[in-house]
Each structure stands twice: as C-alpha cells, then as structure tokens.
Write a protein that binds this DNA or RNA. Structure first.
Lengths: 246, 246
DNA sequence: GAGTGGTCTAGACCACGGT
DNA sequence: CCGTGGTCTAGACCACTCC
C-alpha cells in the first residue's frame, strides 16, 4: 500500500521532523522535488497536501512551502476517527479498561428520539447504554443507537466487547466518516449516578453521528465523560476563500 | 474569486442540498460530470474533494460518490478557524458582547512560560488577559501571548477591540493556521472569580497555537469558558491508510 | 522580471465493486 | 466482464511574492 505520493510524503515528513530544513524553514520548490523524486508536479503537490493536512507545512503562492514551527501541541497530535478520538490525557501505559452494560435493548424510534438522533421514526434500532471504566474509574458514559437493518446480529455480548471489531470482521460494510459535536454541560442526575465525577458537577459531551461507506447514517452515540481525563486535538486553516453557507 | 472547480463545487453542493440526487443518493459519475461541465477529470475531482471536506459526500472506489445522509448535526455545522470556532449555542440574534481587560503587559518569556506556550525563552511578548462578556455574562476568559517581533505595536486599546482586525489591516502578514487542544477541567480559583460559572465548578478549555503565513508561531491563547454555552463541530474520516507516527 | 505555487487540461493505466 | 474512482504523467497558463 505504498503509492508514490505516500513514499514522498513520508520521506519529506521524516526530513522535516529531523530538522533538515531548519535553516530556511521552507521545503525545496516543487520543481526541485519533481527532479529529485523523478515524478510529475501533481504527485509532488499531492504529497505536500498530505504534509499540510498533518499541520506540518503551509503553502503560500509566490513564496513557497513554509514549515510550521513546532509546538507542545504536536506532542498530543493524533487523528480522531470516531469517539476514540477522545484521547486519554493519562498515558496509555498500565491502563486497565472495562465496559459495563447498563442497558441493551431493541426498540423502535419514536418522534422524540428521532429529533435527537436524526434516525427516521419507526426505524428498528439496538440501544446500548455503556459505562467505560479506566483503572476501575467510571470515566465515560456512552449512549448508542445502531440501525438494526445495518448492524445485523448485534447483541449484549458483542456490545460488551468491541462493536467496531464485530462490524469489521463480520459485516459487509465499512465505516466511512463521522460528524461530531463537542460541548461542556452541567452534570445531570444520571451523570452523577453513573460517572465517578468526584467533586465535579460538569461533564464533557460528544455527540457522534457515524456513516457507512454506503452513505448511510448507522450509529448515533452520545458520550458523556468526566473532566481532566480526555483531550481532543485538531488542526485548522483559514479557508482561503470558500465559506460555508449551507 | 470563482475558479472553475469552485463553481462546480457550489453547483453540486446546491443540488445535493436541494435533494436532486435523493433517489440514488449518489453523485453522477466523474465521466458524466466531465461532460456536463465541459472540463477535465482532475477539476471534477477537485470539486468532489471540496464536497467531501464539507462532510457531504464520500467516494468509494468502484462504486461511486455516495451522498451522506443528513443529520441534526448539520444544522450546527461550521468551520472553525481560530478560537471563534467556539460557536455560541444561543443564537447570534440580540447578543451584546463586550471585552474587559484584566491585564495588558509586555514581558519576557521565562522557562516556565516557555514550556507552557512553546515560545522560546527570552522572547519579548505582549500578554493580554481578557474576559468576554455575552449579554453581560462573563462566559469566556482568554489568556493570550503574542510575539512582539511579529505583532508590532499592539496596545491595550487594540486588545479591547479586535486584535485580528488590527493584524489584517495594519500588519504585513496573514494568519495561516492553528492547532487546538480541547479539554474539560475542574474550575480553579481564578475561574470562579472571573467567570459567571453559577453552580458549575468546571470549565471548557481550548489551547490554541496560531501561525502566520511565514510559518511562525505568533500567538498562544488559552480560553477557559463556562459550560452550556459553546459547541465545536467537526467532520472526521477514517484515514483509509495513512497513520500518524510522528 | 524571475521564481514560486495555484489552476487546468487531456490523456494513461490500475484496483476495486457489482453483475 | 464492465464501470467506477485512485494514481500518475507532462505539459500549459496565471497570480502572487520578492528583489
């Protein structure tokens, strides 16, 4: 799985991290890279685009491809694909995780639920309400709905382990993308009951809508998690022109 | 500023939102679009890439470009460029905003500060500590550091208004990108003093490192904000292959 | 004006999905 | 097998930065 543009991307990435361009803080010009890698300009540009998405470089017309200074933030950098994008602030070493199932049931989406999770009224769904324990502390509370028509054969045992493993290994679709809303809210009665909040009376909330590669929304999960344990990292660019006007 | 690929992008975006493709939930094939817009395939692919970045479509090799189902999340969708990416949950209508300056000073980065904000030791910086009021409520506390060598001539009056307007109108660089860490933390003593937390004892925290288009880190801001008022929205894709191994 | 990245063209071949 | 998107080439012209 190593395309030409990926090889070039990885090569340049390593060189940037190793500090080879620290004198100029710029990449060589596209023309130079074309010659060096004996490839076309489009392929070079594709590689540079990858570096850009990583937050390593930024291109300016007429000036060149500038290398962005490093920050402490980079130490925490990662890509978030789904709810696991919530990276534990504590190191992963010596972490004991477990899942406790509060509810696992099958039900039909009514009007109220439909408004909340954007599934059509009448859709049959699996509802899984789970607590995530880290080192015996209840740090996360996941409330998930899966479309039965897509995630066939889901059951309590699978929910206790990894639903995503089950999908990857047994079902005929792939997970393509997700849309996420992140908030901070006052803790409600359930939060204080099921999460180890300690003295804290607020939670982080992530609402996550997940899509199959057929374009179908198949999962909606609301995660409520305790403070001081998780972080989300992202890289953002001033959209040079395009504006969102949905 | 309307390139060909942008025109096509906007056209297709409108058609998707208008539901023209709702029967198949797929875009026409690239070949069809090439003919329709009388352009090259690369340009069509560029337009589709824009739609993809908006979270509207997802391409699958051999199958086509699938349109993603809509969700309630889309109602809140927006691009976050810097700290303003914290979108107020309350509507923007009838909102009175104000800024109160707690501290404005010039200082030199020492070792402790350097570790926190990734500016080199000895760098001269402006330090602005500001409270954002929305409808007379203290909802956000910004603690910002700007490199003096880059943001020349910053002063208290400018900090009271918009530093970004000042940069755009008076300085010779542009803002390129930012890296962000988002967390939830227990409120500290200062938080309870300066923010209208009410009964809440936690805050949302955004750490933001901002870059010029010369690749220079020039601003570090830590925003601490009250619960229940702000949300961050994002679109994420399963990186088909590329993995981050910095 | 010289050099740089941004847009665009018109092809080619490959890998995967569905029939 | 055919149709689809993914990769890649080898050019062209334009817009911007910087000297």
């Amino acid at each position: 799985m190593d395309n030409k543009f990926e090889i070039i991307y990885k090569t340049l990435k390593k060189e940037i991290i190793d500090g080879i361009y620290n004198d100029t803080m710029k990449l060589p010009t596209e023309a130079v890279l074309v010659k060096r890698f004996d490839t076309s300009r489009n392929t070079i540009r594709r590689s540079i685009q990858c570096l850009n998405e990583d937050g390593l470089v930024y291109s300016v017309k007429g000036r060149g491809v500038v290398i962005l200074e490093n920050t402490r933030v980079d130490e925490m950098f990662f890509k978030m694909g789904n709810f696991q994008g919530l990276k534990a602030l504590s190191s992963y070493a010596n972490v004991k995780t477990a899942t406790k199932i509060r509810v696992f049931e099958e039900l039909t989406v009514d009007e109220k639920l439909s408004k909340r999770i954007s599934f059509p009224i009448g859709e049959r769904v699996f509802h899984a309400d789970r607590i995530r324990l880290i080192n015996d502390r209840a740090t996360m509370h996941d409330n998930s709905y899966f479309k039965k028509s897509i995630v066939k054969g889901l059951n309590k045992d699978i929910a206790k382990e990894s639903i995503y493993n089950y999908i990857n290994e047994n079902l005929d679709f792939n997970i393509a993308a997700s849309k996420t809303v992140t908030k901070v809210e006052s803790a409600n009665k359930i939060d204080s009951e099921v999460l180890d909040l300690g003295k804290n009376n607020c939670v982080g909330v992530v609402e996550n809508a997940v899509y199959t590669d057929m374009g179908k929304l198949f999962e909606h999960t609301t995660i409520r998690y305790i403070p001081n344990e998780y972080a989300i990292v992202s890289f953002n660019q001033s959209d040079k022109d395009r504006v969102d006007h949905l």
